[in-house]
Simulated assay, not measured.
Amino acid sequence: MPQVQLCHHFDAGRCRSCTWLGTPYDVQLVAKQRQVEDLLAGHGLADASWLPPVASAQLGFRNKAKMVVHGTVEAPTLGILNPAGAGVDLRDCPLHTPGIRAALRVLAAFVTRAALTPYDVPTRRGELKHLLVTESPDGELMVRFVLRSQEPVARIRKHLAGLRSELPTLAVASVNLQPEHKAILEGDREIPLTEQETLTMRVDGLALHLRPQSFFQTNTAMAAELYRLGRSWVGSVAPATVWDLYCGVGGFALAIAGTGAAVTGIEISPEAVASARLSAADLPDVRFEVGDATAYAAAAGAPPDLVVVNPPRRGIGPELAGWLESSGVRHVLYSSCNAQTLAKDLDAMPSLRPVRGQLLDMFPNTAHYEVLTLLERS
């Protein structure tokens, strides 16, 4: 694959978040595939069962911007903080979609117009901590202002009509309150600013409704491929009942519903479950519940035919892995963003052997990825 032009922020040493950006993309893919194959080599996944890795666009793929706001009202920076604590402006970061890059220019001017004082970490003064911007495949935007207090909310509301005039793709806007002086992105309380409160993410024929505090994969094209593969692989074993544990906004569950299975999604985040229920409003054989994945499985009666797990980087852990091992479940679809914890979980499930695997490059220019494996009871 031809090497793309490097980011000028990377070239200048201002931002090195994309640690592999200087590595040719085909070399990146080979390195990731080799690491995953090595980690799972002892679990019976033969070379012939590995499908070719799914490549991503190297730039312009990221559908969400998480921008630290720094500087002054008159000259804000939107980006990251350097080691000295100064703001590095990355509003033209080439990882983001063109729509997000255009929006960040408008939002920087809005910070000045609405007199939103950037938060200063050393002095603990100021109000605006982060700007979080998500773009849907339809080109609509969700913008969230992460504030220390409600003090600027009235000014944001006052100037919101002007912002929407300059940014006609703005569909959802809200304020998130994060009053603590901690390195956390957002707080618990969300204040809607627009009548519309969900952003519709259309991926692979699904209409997923994203609420402000719901998680969604940052690479839309790879998310669509992930759900397409999930539907195909699950359909090939034709389960009658499926649990989607760690279901998030319901991507896998809703994709699998098209196979004819009765699907139950379990997710600990009420915001995500609210999003999933909205997306499933017209689907009778899909339901979503708020709950801990491990606790739900342990308390349930008869297991389903197939279980989907899509855990955070820490993996599913020994308790859920032990339950899956002893449950009699015939198949598990495991979507992992960390093959090291995947391998550890597989150690705890020796009766469930991988029969198919594929790497999806969800995070180009870094060492991270998503890997999908179908496990079958031996």
Rank of each mutant, 00 (worst) to 15 (best):
R125Q: 11
K129C: 01
Q150A: 15
D92Y: 12
L147H: 05
P364Q: 00
P212K: 08
G13I: 10
L320A: 08
L104Y: 00
K64V: 07
A261S: 03
P364Y: 05
G258C: 09
P318C: 04
P179F: 00
A281I: 01
Q340T: 15
E325Q: 15
A238R: 11
L333Q: 08
A224S: 11
H8R: 15
V111H: 03
N338W: 09
Y227M: 03
I100N: 02
E271P: 10
E151S: 12
A281N: 10
C15M: 06
G248Q: 12
L177R: 05
G265K: 02
L372W: 05
S279E: 05
D345Q: 00
E319R: 14
V309M: 04
P192Y: 03
Q58A: 13
P284Q: 13
G99E: 01
G44W: 06
S49E: 14
Y334V: 12
D282R: 07
R228F: 00
G328Y: 09
H209Q: 12
L39Y: 05
R113H: 12
F216Y: 13
G44V: 02
S335C: 09
R101I: 13
L40I: 07
T117M: 10
A46Q: 14
T112R: 15
V329F: 06
I156F: 10
E370Q: 11
P152Y: 02
G357M: 04
S269C: 08
A255D: 01
A46V: 13
H209Y: 11
A65M: 00
R287M: 13
S214L: 04
F61E: 09
T259R: 04
P94F: 09
A183S: 14
K158C: 09
W323R: 04
L372S: 01
V175H: 05
S236K: 05
A161W: 10
Y246M: 13
E319C: 02
L206C: 08
H70K: 14
L306F: 00
R91D: 13
R202P: 09
A102S: 12
K32S: 01
R157Y: 10
A274D: 12
P179Y: 02
P53G: 11
